[in-house]
């Protein structure tokens, strides 16, 4: 198994230098995500405007390259999207990495598709989905997410 299929340049780079990393003082949605199995932790902040558009997204935390890169790419991707689109992306991303092909309402995931390789590493799927579960919980108003 060639690890480069999973650890593509973009993932390694985002893992090393995550975008949108840090607090967001005027966030109106936030949630903490935790994968107790491996100790990955993150806090996600969202600023959603009156029209339901994600104006800003930032995160803090620590974890493996996959979870950090996934959070980094996610915060980039959801900016400018509506809350509904962000939730759709969560569903589509989940299907992509679980390899279930059940997405009822497909949406183009763009750059995030680079994480598809994680589906060949079942023990690492939760690393990739932690940020998205945290996003989903933030939007649902739940403050804690766990991917154990």
């Amino acid at each position: 198994m060639d690890p480069r299929a999973l650890y593509q340049e973009v993932i390694v780079e985002h893992g090393r230098r995550p975008r949108n990393f840090g607090p967001l003082p005027d966030a109106n949605y936030r949630a903490r995500g935790h994968n107790p199995l491996c100790g990955d932790r993150m806090t996600l902040y969202l600023k959603v405007d009156d029209q339901g558009i994600v104006e800003d997204a930032r995160f803090e935390g620590e974890g493996c390259a996959i979870s950090m890169a996934s959070a980094s790419l996610m915060t980039e991707a959801v900016k400018g999207k509506t809350v509904e689109e962000a939730e759709l992306m969560f569903e589509n991303f989940h299907d992509l990495v679980m390899d279930t092909h059940e997405a009822k309402r497909p949406i183009d995931l763009g750059k995030i598709k680079i994480l598809a390789g994680v589906k060949d590493y079942p023990s690492r799927v939760k690393c990739a989905t932690l940020a998205w579960h945290t996003l989903h919980n933030a939007l649902e108003g739940k403050e804690e997410a766990s991917t154990e």
Partner: peptide, 13 residues
């Protein structure tokens, strides 16, 4: 340079 889980995955490969 790397998180233990990433190390574990590369080593498994």
């Amino acid at each position: 340079c790397a998180h233990p889980h990433d190390i574990g995955t590369i080593l498994d490969g």
